[in-house]
Computed example of a mutant assay.
Amino acid sequence: MDSLSALVASMGLRGRVDLLCRFAGAWSVPHPEAPAGQVPYHVVLAGKGVLEVGRERRPFVAGDLVLFPRGSAHTMRHADGATLTFAEVRRPLGRIVEVASEAPHSEFDVLCGTFELGQHHALLLQALPEVVHLHTQGRDDYAGLHALMHTMRHESLQASPGGDAVIAHLSAALFTVVVRTLMDEGELRQGLLALLMDARVAPALAAVIAAPAEPWTLERLADVSRMSRASFARHFAELSSMTPMEVVTALRMDLAARLLRETPRSIELIGEACGYVSRAAFGQAFKRVHGASPAAFRRQAGGAASTTKV
């Protein structure tokens, strides 16, 4: 498994589609800031409009995909920048809710959803820009992404058995394709994803993702990348504000948070899976990164109550 696939698999990413918006005439829809670890997205299937994020205004058209890795508050408006309120009708439609204006024929059609990565994936989210805006219309190299967008819309409008599972897998695929597209286009020059793209340091990072419990040191990481310690550290610093060992700790803590939230494993076993030989050492490292002890984090996250050892 390549390192990006392993990283996405380790995240336990979940996705959902919430709304299908169909508007005509003058409309304006504000979106509040999303909770930490949630990435709102919009898939524009027809029409055009204006997106406002803070003081920035940018047009969008059919075929565009917009993500907000920091969960930034934003507003979508009619292409003329309308600010008027408008009457809307909400009704269930398949697995989602349709939000429509009272105008008889919609000019704007957008699918709205959320990728859920959890607060513990800050390392990955920090590697992404505040707004990801991809234009797929008329681009043959985006054919796969465009097809995914329309397949998600189709599944969302159905009530067929297995649809939730299909949407979950399509969401993970869509997120992965977007990240890969940003990597391929050279949009990520700093952070975790830039490290994964760099042929010099990527082998070490892939090794940590594959085996986080190994006793990693700077020397071992440099050996995996077949570089001297000094050269490895220098190249790493060109791509990340974090040191190699800080990245190792962050990846381990991402894994620890996911295991605490999603599994009933004991804190001791989770610590061992993340490379810590004692519960005390694991607890100190975890609290330093997440601001809470492993036990408190599990309670706050609504994690598995059982501590069955598996």
Rank of each mutant, 00 (worst) to 15 (best):
A6C: 13
V8T: 02
A9N: 13
M11S: 14
R16D: 09
D18N: 12
L20E: 06
L20W: 04
C21S: 11
R22E: 14
A24H: 10
V29Y: 07
V29A: 12
H31E: 08
A34C: 08
V44A: 05
A46W: 01
A46C: 09
G49W: 01
L51N: 04
E56T: 11
F60S: 01
L65E: 06
L65T: 05
P69D: 04
G71M: 05
G71R: 00
T75Y: 00
M76Q: 09
R77C: 09
A79M: 10
L84A: 14
E88I: 15
V89H: 11
R90Q: 12
V99I: 14
A100V: 09
S106V: 06
V110K: 00
F115G: 02
L117D: 00
A122P: 00
A122E: 11
L145N: 03
L148N: 08
M152Q: 09
S156G: 15
A168I: 00
L170R: 02
S171M: 06
S171P: 07
L188G: 04
R189E: 14
G191D: 08
L193G: 07
R200K: 14
L205A: 08
I209L: 15
E214A: 15
E214H: 13
P215R: 07
W216V: 04
T217M: 13
R226F: 08
M227R: 06
R229I: 09
A230T: 10
S231A: 15
A233E: 07
L239N: 10
L239P: 06
S241W: 07
M245T: 02
V247S: 05
V247F: 02
S266Y: 03
I267A: 10
E268P: 11
C274K: 01
C274M: 06
V277F: 07
V277C: 07
S278L: 06
S278P: 08
A281R: 10
H290G: 02
A292P: 04
G302S: 09
A305K: 10
T307P: 03
